[in-house]
Amino acid sequence: MKILVCISKTPDTTAKIAFTDNNRKFAADGVQWIINPYDEWYALVRAIEFKEKDPATVLHLVTVGAADAEPIIRKALALGGDEAIRINTDSHDAYTIASQIAAVAKEGGYDLVLTGKETIDFNGASIGGMVAELLELPYLSLATKVDIEGGAVRVIREIEGGEETDSTSLPVVISCQKGVAEQRIPNMKGIMGARSKPLKVVEPVAVDSLTSIEKFELPPAKAGVKLVPADQPEELVRLLHEEAKVF
């Protein structure tokens, strides 16, 4: 089986979110970057498990980004994977990113493309579905369990109001979330090994974006908490009813 895992670079979950250039750009100064948690904890780790079970599995990682994305993709390689591919372009919108990934996926003839359920910066949850459509493959979104046996795919996925068990056959695109695998910490052997793994840089295909971000905005600051004494919880109920009018 040949697997491609999509890796995105995102600000750390605790990063302060601020903007520069008239609110047109994310203020990246001093921000710690991480592998998008859904890509790392679920998609990548599950792919590594497949390779551990069957060493003949080929596992490639792909990211769309400039040279500054390399530390992140090396970090991912420290967890596992045979080689990484960086598509050398700044990401624009989901459509351009998905088009770049689809071009690499088509070229490489992968059986399985895994993504995280969304990135924690743009929260679009779009890349998996777009890649699947570009490759004309089935897309199983929001998987909580992924099993593959001899080309047969069985996935439990979250649907509106519950869950569904689906079966299909490779090739397929799957977006992964909690339940698919457990987070791993890279060990020293992995970190050292990652340095010598191939990191291929490929040039992007020509594609126009469909959307662009005009500006960012921070939510208005909260007015501050109104504390109610612990011995008067009925006062809280009154405030919620009469002041906040939430019930």
Binding site: G124, G129, M130, E133, L142
Partner: peptide, 23 residues
Amino acid sequence: ANLTGKAIAPRLSVRLKAGLVTG
């Protein structure tokens, strides 16, 4: 933008070449 929307809107964006804004 419920879970059904998340499953189909990205595909439709590609199929229709229509710019997508989620959520």
